[in-house]
Design a binder for these strands. Sequence first.
DNA 1: ATTTTAAAAGTCAAAATTAATCAAAAATTT
DNA 2: AAATTTTTGATTAATTTTGACTTTTAAAAT
Lengths: 159, 159
Amino acid sequence: MQNYENNLSSGIEKYILELFDDRDENDEENFISLRRKDLAEMFGCVPSQINYVLRSRFSPERGYLIESRRGEYGYIKILRISFDGTEEKKEHINDIVGDEISVRNACRLLEFLRERDFITDRERLLIEIALKNQYSSSNEDIAALLKKMLNVLINPEDK
Amino acid sequence: MQNYENNLSSGIEKYILELFDDRDENDEENFISLRRKDLAEMFGCVPSQINYVLRSRFSPERGYLIESRRGEYGYIKILRISFDGTEEKKEHINDIVGDEISVRNACRLLEFLRERDFITDRERLLIEIALKNQYSSSNEDIAALLKKMLNVLINPEDK
DNA sequence: ATTTTAAAAGTCAAAATTAATCAAAAATTT
DNA sequence: AAATTTTTGATTAATTTTGACTTTTAAAAT
């Protein structure tokens, strides 16, 4: 119907992701750096807009870490953390699910895991049905079930 | 049976299904997106009516996933993961599972379905976890959940 | 060596905009 | 008549944009 992701923040997000793509071909470094001021100017926006994009799209739970410096020669460095090992993946997932999570946030997480190809759409469907099926759907119960289901998918012997 | 002809919700449902039809001819994307506000205006109803339609007709159990954002550039994205299976197919599944089933027999059935490549190993594991997780795991509840999950996965597209 | 200055980036909150939730009322079906 | 589904609207929550104010940094000036 509409092009719903044509907003400023998503544009900046895409640009940053492109920077990562360009970088990947050349060498192994999994970070990029930029100047907040320049990026803001390029997109014709206020500098704090960049902070918003970083906070909302390049957060640790999405697999990114930010390093920066102010003043002259200031910069922002965005690191993409990789989850190669099974244990790393498990830890990361258990961390971001935590001890309790709302159904809404669980669905958001599933959306993200699908984007990263951790799970398929069919698997996502099954997990959502299971989460919504729970009668006593306290956020603790939701987190427990979600972690069970995700952990079983990450097990290497299943692949 | 209910009157599917003359109510608002069914009209909105049909409109959304038409959006999918239009989309299918053009390209491969299995989703459509819309603005809740616009759709409500188009049908001359309150916006929360749209949520009702989504909840009652485009649920995960029926093979749909919803993604949405609020605020400026907000949207609702509806993904169709599986087409609704034929009635025969669904009846077949419902016959096999029955009104009640033990977890043990459910697992046997899942193994059978896996051997026939109706489901993957990962999907089998997810369903088993969901079944075993139910607190009040009466055989009726197990059958109900199992049917929900299988109905969504087993459809004519698969074979 | 210390202070000043200019150039970054960070923080925070308001405003605008949009969707979600929830429960009561109304309509329909059983 | 009871149960279920649909409709409605008031309230709440989330997202994005913007800008005023703060903090940090390193070079330049003293």
